[in-house]
Design a protein around this nucleic acid. Structure first.
Lengths: 131, 131
DNA sequence: CTTGACCCTCCAGCGGCTGGAGGCCCTATC
DNA sequence: GATAGGGCCTCCAGCCGCTGGAGGGTCAAG
């Protein structure tokens, strides 16, 4: 299967697939004319990559997921641990973004938002109010 | 004031300050020996940068904030609009991360997490369950 | 006069792609 | 058999926001 077909089947851009090969996540065969030839297995790996990236796994985590998926003797515990780790990272990001949201809301509430140059947001950013 | 002092006063790393100069966010003077010389105004701008970055503004947004802070004839409306825009971006990020959190929780709940190689997470990632 | 902390510039790399240049290959049509 | 259009190839550069390191100059203290 050509890279274009693999792309439509997985939803990944062609460029991204080539990049994944470059960093050793997938290793498609090559035809005589130099074209990549994607086996069904390879496309499955790409699908795993697409899905896992979608779920916020880093490419290094994806690499481990791929290794686990290829290892018939794996323990599901290990996969779960990876997912748990990712979940915790996601939760941390949510927490810090939520803190940020609150701060921004506070600032915005204090700013008149009119023609006047006097602005509580700028005052805060320049440290004129207690920080 | 030397860059090191500016760094401790603003909490920004020296490298970052040099980078901010490189992209034209600040323009410290230069001494005869080539050392950067930071005025109080310049340090204030760095503080604004530090604080705004901390609040999730992009460097381009920071550039606009700096322009507004330097413009005595500004309208606070414009500052507020920038902050509002940033707030909305933050909220969008939170929303997508929360969706992700839910999905991950669901997957993790389905995985036994034992010695068995059979794993609902991998099954899902490879599209074996209705994705 | 030497040590060590500071400062300088320039180049390279992180993650995860993305765009573009410049060129080969393949199929279809005339 | 020529040509047009698409798809494929490689390689290089750039996005954001820094960060690290090499290789050097400068300055104050002992």
């Amino acid at each position: 299967m050509n890279i274009g077909t693999a792309a439509t089947q997985t939803g990944l851009p062609v460029k991204t697939i080539r990049y994944y090969e470059e960093i050793g996540l997938v290793t498609p065969d090559r035809r005589a004319n130099g074209y990549r030839d994607f086996s069904d297995t390879c496309v499955e790996q790409l699908r795993l990559l697409a899905q896992a990236r979608h779920l916020g796994f880093s490419l290094e985590e994806c690499r481990r997921l791929l290794a686990l998926s290829a290892d018939e003797g794996r323990a599901s515990r290990d996969v779960r641990a990876l997912a748990q780790q990712n979940l915790e990272a996601v939760r941390e990001k949510i927490a810090s973004l939520t803190a940020l949201e609150t701060q921004l809301e506070g600032l915005i509430a204090q700013c008149h938002g009119d023609d006047d140059p006097d602005c509580a947001i700028l005052d805060d950013l320049m440290g004129l109010r207690g920080n």
